[in-house]
Design a protein around this nucleic acid. Structure first.
Lengths: 197, 197
DNA sequence: ACTTATATGGATCGCCGATCCGAATAAGAG
DNA sequence: CTCTTATTCGGATCGGCGATCCATATAAGT
């Protein structure tokens, strides 16, 4: 890639990060281009769609989340690991207002630039879930796709200003519904209705 | 109101109903105006915002839902009444793709034309919830606003094509988490994991 | 220094909702 | 039935959006 192209690309990503943090993922692409001292056409050449821009911007975060899932899978009790990871996923989305809707659209759209990242995330969650289920810590009538949907719904709640105040409480309600209290031996791991910051 | 104005208003509502059923609540207002053989300005004079149009279009449905809540409150077991009503609320939103987001925005926005309808709906749910809680059929760590948020999240799930297939199952999961199995006598009322079809 | 492949961004397109205002017209008075 | 008037209408226009085109500018290699 030519040097000026690389510079513009990086400048665009930096500006996009700021703009999206400030205004959410629906921020005007024209605005981002302006703030990056670049033409709209240049932005769109580097990132043909809003999803492509987001993918470039969030891939690191996605990787962190899946890496964290792996770490928790090795280090924590199955039930704990699952709930802690879900909590972090939901908390992460709050940094990027509106990203949940795009992810929900991307998970079944192989054309979307966000598709692969979303699939990876779902897979990471599915592993933690399966482990918890094997340990008898989570109910077995749910799978990775169901878990993804549940997390998406909770993340969406956090995105709606009027509903966000209840999001933490409803997170606890839903996660304790996932963590079985019937078959598991170590029930206490599931009763973490502490806080969620 | 002048006769031609009334006629246009009714024509607009009829066309809007069709268009929204076909394309969701984000359908172009210009499109609605065109299909109603009316200028865009005329549509916007009758309904200054998208919310105003929707309120006029959906008020009857809102009233039906609150009336149904009253009926269930008189006729059914507290737990049953709550869950049946919640199911109907979620099912209703599926007829108007995208309406959930607007309702979530309206519930705390006194300026929105949908505000009053949303508040009424929340109040109806709160009554059913309080009754179930008094009967020991529902957990007491949730209130009307929490219930509204939960229903909104479930409705939103149904709106996302990729997540909708899980919406029914997750509805059962969440409602059975609301219905307490600890303090209530008639547990069976809560185990309605039948269909949601 | 010159050539060439690459990258740029202004201009333009079709779309959106919001608003303005002269033209059309329904409704009431004489 | 005619005339007046207040109401309503809708074409035109505005600013903003993302998508696309293409003449210009420039980095990189000879």
């Amino acid at each position: 890639m030519r040097a000026d192209a690389r510079k513009n690309r990086e400048q665009l990503l930096a500006v996009a990060g700021t703009a999206i943090t400030e205004q959410g993922v629906d921020v005007s692409l024209r605005d981002i281009a302006r703030r990056a001292d670049v033409g709209l056409a240049t932005l769109l050449r580097h990132f043909p769609t809003r999803e492509a821009l987001l993918d470039a911007l969030l891939r690191a975060s996605f990787d962190e989340l899946t890496a964290e899932a792996d770490a928790l899978e090795r280090a924590s009790e199955p039930g704990d690991a699952l709930v802690l990871w879900l909590r972090d996923c939901v908390a992460w989305t709050t940094e990027y207002r509106g990203v949940t809707v795009l992810m929900a659209a991307a998970i079944n759209d192989t054309e979307s630039a966000l598709h692969a990242s979303c699939v990876s995330l779902r897979a990471a969650g599915a592993r933690l879930l399966a482990r918890a289920q094997s340990a008898g810590a989570a109910r077995t009538d749910i799978d990775g796709a169901g878990l993804f949907a549940l997390v998406a719904a909770l993340a969406w709640l956090g995105d709606q200003p009027s509903l966000a105040p209840r999001a933490g409480h409803l997170f606890d309600l839903i996660t304790s519904a996932i963590l079985t209290r019937e078959e598991s031996g170590h029930v206490e791991a599931g009763r973490r209705s502490g806080g969620r910051g």
